[in-house]
Simulated scan of single mutants.
Amino acid sequence: MKEPVFALTSELVKLIAEVDEFKGRWQALKTLSPDRLNALRKVAAVESIGSSTRIEGAKLTDVQVETLLSNLEKTSFLTRDEQEVAGYAEAMDMVFEAYADMRITENHIRQLHQVLLRHSTKDERHRGSYKTLANNVVAFDADGKEIGVVFETATPFDTPREMEELVAWTNKAIAEESHHPLLIIAVFIVTFLAIHPFQDGNGRLSRVLTTLLLMRAGYAYVPFASLESVVEANKDFYYKALRRTQTTLKTDNPDWMPWTGFFLRSLKKQKDTLEARIEKESGGSDSDDDLPEISVQVIALLRKEGRQTPSQLARAIGANKNTLKVRLRELVEAGRIKRHGKARATWYSL
């Protein structure tokens, strides 16, 4: 793998500085109660899982994702979308719990891929294994007919060698601090997606690996704000930036700037979103803007109807009872609503 050469613009240098400044301030900013921080983390998890799977074609909304996550003890997931959400949630949980011990190795990458596709019956034969068939990125017409190759990924024959080279370069660059950590992560991700080492799941896995690399580099705030939702909101720019860099990777002078610029701007948006939410929470704001959709509906219904039982709320909102129970508990702990009575006599008010 060629050693990357960066010609950083003043804008990109400023972006790196802003993200690093927030990284340094995170411990001081993290002054909310554990309950409120936990609520922020839950919202970010739902947004991340929903966005990352939708980028690849899933259709589940954040509310549907949240309902599914409240029932992950299920032993089977009927639809492809449910299987992808469950797998992504488990892969992210593994990263959050074990990132300190998960160096970037081919074994860890394959292990995460196996977890990611754990519930996907269609992918049972190849989960955790490098591809054996070509998986070039192709374009389709409105009828779903393939109309051409957009980008040629690594061949199955070349994939093991290219993955070995990428992992070796990444660990050497991290150890020697030859580039800023964010630039190393950017190079790893765009090259990983150019290789497309697995038959399926490469896009989702790249975002899991982004989280792993960021957390290992000390960006401890990452679980509290969704980078995936930033990518989903800018999906066209995401693919254009990837292609503009990837089409140059086999040339004498790869152009890292299109992808690096998109990646750094996305990281800034991620930290801006979290910073705004922290400030709003710290200031005691009663705005409903950052609450999960079900919580907003609960507050609106209590404003309109006054006293409501859990059954009345469930019928009016149409929410899963397990999810509603979690939302009600969070709203009570945050002081937004009051709980009255016990067991079947329970009711809520503002």
Rank of each mutant, 00 (worst) to 15 (best):
K145F: 14
H196Y: 11
N171Q: 15
H179G: 01
V231I: 15
A186K: 01
L205S: 03
Q199F: 09
K172A: 04
S226F: 04
A233W: 10
T211I: 07
P223M: 01
I184Y: 02
T159M: 04
W169A: 00
H180T: 02
P197R: 01
A134H: 14
V231D: 04
A220G: 10
A154D: 10
A220L: 12
F192L: 05
L166N: 06
V167K: 00
N136P: 11
T132K: 14
T210C: 04
V167G: 01
E176T: 07
I174W: 01
I189N: 04
Q246M: 03
V187Y: 04
V149D: 10
A217V: 00
A220M: 08
L213S: 07
A173S: 11
T153R: 03
W169G: 00
R244E: 15
S229M: 04
H196P: 05
A139G: 11
E228K: 02
E177R: 12
L227F: 13
E228I: 06
L242V: 09
T191Q: 15
K235S: 12
H179M: 09
R161G: 09
N202I: 10
A186R: 02
Y238T: 02
N135K: 11
L133C: 08
G144T: 04
F192Y: 12
A154W: 05
T248K: 01
F151Q: 05
M215C: 09
P160M: 03
I185E: 04
D141V: 09
I195N: 05
H180F: 05
V150P: 09
A217L: 01
K235N: 12
K235Y: 12
L205N: 00
